[in-house]
């Protein structure tokens, strides 16, 4: 079963083994990997109009601005509707360093995103702390804070790399019914259960 997105031949992807392996695993575990035509239609629509939340903390964010401008033109793919409110966005492109003070804010924004929601960790800072690995106040990767769907390496990643990353996400969304649907939701819930926010009251 070939999973791809519009205008991208299946062979052009660099990591098809990974997606095939996932599908295979799910099949082996007895998940029904059949998609109905209604699902297809919905997923087609969803994967071609994923809207990002404007969330840029530093350098990587500027490349994201370039991505929105005429040259790289993400409007071609239906991602151009960058929303300022998390309630209206589908995914979060975490472009930039996340530091100590930003962590609770970032987590709250994630919690405010409407389901289904996705996160792309964009740039080495968001992946692992990047150049600031030795810092006393930078979060070493956002994976400990929210579940991440796609990683885009680079410092900053080129706009082309960002396009590839978001296309990966839209391909994942396309097959979500098979291996996402139940499974994805479950892993997300598990993650959130293991990273709870304690209710505290401040005087």
């Amino acid at each position: 079963m070939e999973v791809t997105t519009k205008g991208m031949p299946y062979e052009a992807w660099k990591d098809n083994e990974y997606i095939e392996k996932l599908v295979q695993e799910l099949r082996d575990n007895g998940t029904n990997v059949v998609v109905g035509s209604l699902d297809k239609l919905i997923n087609w629509g969803r994967s071609n109009s994923i809207w990002p939340l404007t969330f840029a903390t530093s350098c990587c964010g500027i490349e994201f601005v370039s991505l929105g401008a005429a040259r790289y033109d993400m409007a071609r793919f239906g991602w151009e509707v960058a929303r300022a409110s998390p309630r209206q966005a589908d995914f979060m492109m975490v472009a930039g360093t996340i530091v100590h003070r930003m962590v609770p804010v970032f987590r709250r924004l994630y919690d405010q995103l409407a389901e289904p929601k996705y996160v792309i960790a964009c740039g080495s800072c968001a992946i692992s702390g990047g150049p600031f690995k030795k810092s006393y106040c930078v979060a070493m990767g956002i994976e400990d804070i929210v579940p991440v769907d796609v990683f885009v390496p680079g410092c900053p990643p080129r706009p082309e790399a960002m396009i590839y990353g978001i296309m990966q996400l839209s391909r994942k969304i396309k097959v979500e019914k098979f291996f996402g649907g139940v499974n994805r939701k479950k892993s997300q819930e598990e993650f959130l259960a293991s990273h709870p926010i304690q209710e505290t009251t401040h005087e």
Partner: peptide, 25 residues
């Protein structure tokens, strides 16, 4: 402080050429 990355402190642990790249960031 929402993007305070502690560059000045990291510079005290890096050699002179290594401190340069923070200027880009």
């Amino acid at each position: 402080g929402y993007i305070h990355r502690g560059v000045e402190k990291i510079c005290e642990e890096d050699t002179y050429p290594q401190t340069l790249h923070f200027m880009d960031r």
